[in-house]
Nucleic acid binder design. Sequence first.
DNA 1: TTGTACGCGTTATCAA
DNA 2: TTGATAACGCGTACAA
Lengths: 341, 341
Amino acid sequence: MITIKEIAARLGMSTTTVSNVIHGKTREVSAETIERVQKFLEEVEYVPNINARNLAQGQSKIIGVVLKSLDFRLWHSSNILNDPFVSEMIGGIESAVREAGYYMMLYISDDIAEIIQRISIWNVDGLILFCMMDDDGNRVAAKYHKPMVCIDTYSSEKKDDFVNVGLDDEKSTCEAVNYLIDNGHRKIGFVTDNRVGVDRARFWGYRKALAEAGIEYSDRDFFLLEPAEEAHGRNIEKLCRRARDYTALFCCSDIYAAIMMSALKERGLRVPEDISIIGFDDNLFSRVCTPRLTTVHQDADRKGRVAVQTLIGMITGKAPATKKIRLETRLVIRDSVRKIE
Amino acid sequence: MITIKEIAARLGMSTTTVSNVIHGKTREVSAETIERVQKFLEEVEYVPNINARNLAQGQSKIIGVVLKSLDFRLWHSSNILNDPFVSEMIGGIESAVREAGYYMMLYISDDIAEIIQRISIWNVDGLILFCMMDDDGNRVAAKYHKPMVCIDTYSSEKKDDFVNVGLDDEKSTCEAVNYLIDNGHRKIGFVTDNRVGVDRARFWGYRKALAEAGIEYSDRDFFLLEPAEEAHGRNIEKLCRRARDYTALFCCSDIYAAIMMSALKERGLRVPEDISIIGFDDNLFSRVCTPRLTTVHQDADRKGRVAVQTLIGMITGKAPATKKIRLETRLVIRDSVRKIE
DNA sequence: TTGTACGCGTTATCAA
DNA sequence: TTGATAACGCGTACAA
């Protein structure tokens, strides 16, 4: 790896000149010199040492992407990336980071202290936080004073002045459940594996739809998928038995919908003839299961990109227009919901 | 962020001593000093500046993970991470990298030159390459002289002396197809979306099984899923029509299997009554579709971890025992294959 | 228009 | 057992 110093020596000029050409500070250099330097740079395939550059400038050009790996998100697989929604979002983040000339570093951990440690070491320029709970975001913010953007975060704290990219989860869910109600359903279950954050907001949307239609809610209508692997079989068994009292299930993600659908069908129930199912996300799962899933569409790739664009805006000194950025959703009607009389 | 220099000043000693304590070069320092420094370090929550450290040591502690985003892998979704096999493998890589005290940087691109540029800038200590084709690996190796480990790579070059973590794809496929043959199937199609690398090796396994059973192969038995989004509908339609002449399909991944199954069922064919299907990977898709998929199991998480462990061994000077590391596979029998007479 | 010299935070060599 | 001091490669104020 050749250095600026050596280039300068070989060209018989100073490092300043070389550096200036590299950075396009061209008004201070003669056209001839520019030409000569640029040619030589290409010839030797110069690549800057980013450690030295960062050290000199007190920056890092790194965007830290923090995924808090919550157990409950994992019960169906070994890691959080396995959720197509997450992996598609990461894909969007990666592209946007790269296109902006930054680098991405991925931190997966459920230990906030460890995360803070690692982002501090790298002096990360900005942070994207996904799946943060309660005061996690605040804890990071308190220790690490750099721009940060959250994705899908609901804070239980009073002072929720963080920037967030998310959905109107309550409204989206309310619309989906209304669709079920419009199709004649009155016994509607709510399926998820947790009671916090996004899923809690969706739960309130579900409750709102029920209330507006004059349908009473009981705790039995809440179907909780359990994370523990060993208990999984029994848990599913119990949920399927309970499901027989319902004509429809709203599931908080396509994965849950696919899992429930598969389990129900295995036990002889037909979808949508015996029970209707609706999902959330509109990812590959919704198109591949049979029947194809009616679901709430969201654009995970775009969610990631918007988060990055907002963050880079903040890094370069542009405050976002809104702190709460909300992306669109829409109900995609396929074949998993039946009209009943 | 406090620096060693400042700590030294405040403690009234030299930076050398502080640095020595930090690195446990303890035999050169008095117990009392160690005590005093360590206490202070904790008090001020010292975190090293890794840019400075790397600059001084000529290393980076970064493992570069390169995913060449091939179009054909993407036809069903917007990015390569969306394949559960890939995302699970990345999860394994991330954990292993983190546990070894390294950092992971992810490079997704189909432009080898760009990738080389970016890994050079960061002076990455080692590389993991996934989905490299033909001479891609050699091109990287020629420019960047650091340890590297490939995953699932078959090189068409003569000099394939790179380290690779993979499967015996030919044998695994042969076994799976033999299972179909043992169950009475003679008209067996092969489904994939490309003719290179891993899928080519699997194709030869399929051919071998057919040959050993005295079944003739014709080009019509090759079902090529097409990447182009617009053409997708027509492509699937045509494949499903052709599939009516077959009693079984071997699919190169669970995703393809799930897609084919869904499309076939939509057109009134029953699985496995009318047509049997077998997949590859054994990921979430195989457990969620109906009927549950009979498939070749591989451990994607482990694949990633083994690659990292091998690579870090190489970085620290341990040559791997074998250049071609092969992980186990096994056929997982579920419900998508029927015995016929 | 070009060059000198210093600072960024660490590590490492060598002398004290 | 400790402390100066010189690298590491780059950017930049300031001098020439």
